[in-house]
């Protein structure tokens, strides 16, 4: 199946648009359906599609395993760090109101940053799960 040119060309054409669609879902989640959880999964799906057609090794070059593991922790850090930032600025944990002068701008900023953290973690966890399952080598 991997030698079939149809799969190769279609997956190459689709790879970019899927990632752009994921970013659209991520940053348009405030105005329509979407948000960090869905966007992370969609971007991970692009990489999974690529690895199904072209093999695991090429995707591992594109997005190394260690890099994925770091992104996984980075997303949680971004989310939790937002809370720490609001404590430093003198509000309660995860209260976004001190981030900007007007309250709606502050809330909007906080929501975008938090959703970015969610998206990073979900993307990295889904891709990491796929790497772990498909790269598993039984001992026998």
């Amino acid at each position: 199946m991997r030698e079939n040119p149809v799969f190769k060309i279609v997956s190459k054409i689709l790879f970019g648009p899927i990632i752009i669609y994921g970013l659209y879902v991520q940053f348009h989640g405030d105005y329509g359906p979407g948000g960090g959880f869905q966007a992370g999964v969609i971007v991970a799906a692009a990489f999974i599609l690529y690895s199904i057609i072209f093999g695991l090794e090429r995707v591992r070059k594109l997005m190394p395993v260690i890099f994925v593991n770091y992104i996984m922790a980075l997303g949680v850090l971004v989310f939790a760090g937002t809370g720490i930032a609001s404590i430093i600025l003198g509000a309660n944990y995860l209260d976004y109101s001190p981030f900007a002068y007007k309250i709606y701008k502050a809330q909007h900023l906080g929501i975008i940053v938090v959703e970015l953290g969610v998206g990073l973690t979900v993307f990295a966890v889904m891709l990491g799960l796929f790497y772990a399952f498909s790269g598993f080598k039984p001992k026998k």
Binding site: G110, I111, E115
Partner: peptide
């Protein structure tokens, strides 16, 4: 309060941010 039309995003990220943090962890 937020000028964001998607109520689900508002509740997810702001009103119930603690809940979402827990789920992400």
């Amino acid at each position: 309060l937020f000028h964001i039309p998607n109520v689900v995003t508002n509740v997810l990220a702001s009103y119930r941010g603690f809940d979402t943090l827990g789920e992400v962890v």
